[in-house]
Simulated assay, not measured.
Amino acid sequence: MSAPDVPVEELDLRGSQYVNLSREDIKEYIRFFLNDDKDYKNALRQWIQDRNISDNDFVEQVATKSENNFMYLRYILPGIAKGGYKDLNLKQLPDGLQDYYQVHWQRMGMEEKSQELKVFILFILVEIGTQIPCEMIADITEQDELDVQSVLDEWVEYLKPQNLDGDNCYSIYHASFLDFLQTKKELKATRKLFTKVNQRIVDYWDSK
Rank of each mutant, 00 (worst) to 15 (best):
M1W: 04
A3Q: 14
V6P: 04
V8S: 04
V8L: 10
L13G: 08
R14Q: 09
V19K: 10
E28R: 12
I30Q: 05
Y40M: 07
R45K: 14
I48D: 11
S54T: 15
D55K: 11
E60L: 15
Q61S: 13
V62P: 14
N68F: 03
F70L: 02
M71T: 02
I76P: 07
P78N: 14
I80Q: 03
A81C: 08
G83E: 10
K86H: 14
Q92V: 07
Q92Y: 06
L93K: 13
P94S: 08
P94Y: 10
D95M: 11
G96M: 03
Q98R: 11
Q98N: 13
D99E: 15
Y100H: 12
Q102L: 07
Q102A: 15
R107G: 06
R107C: 02
M110G: 02
E111C: 09
E116M: 04
L117T: 07
I121S: 06
I121P: 00
I121Y: 03
I124C: 15
V126F: 04
E127T: 13
M136W: 10
D139K: 10
D139Q: 12
D139A: 13
I140M: 10
I140P: 10
T141Y: 02
T141Q: 13
D144F: 05
L146P: 00
K160C: 01
P161C: 03
N163S: 09
L164R: 11
L164Y: 14
D165Y: 13
D165C: 00
G166W: 02
Y173V: 01
S176F: 06
Q182S: 08
Q182C: 12
K185D: 01
E186M: 11
K188N: 07
A189L: 12
T190M: 05
L193I: 08
F194Y: 15
I201C: 02
V202T: 14
W205P: 02
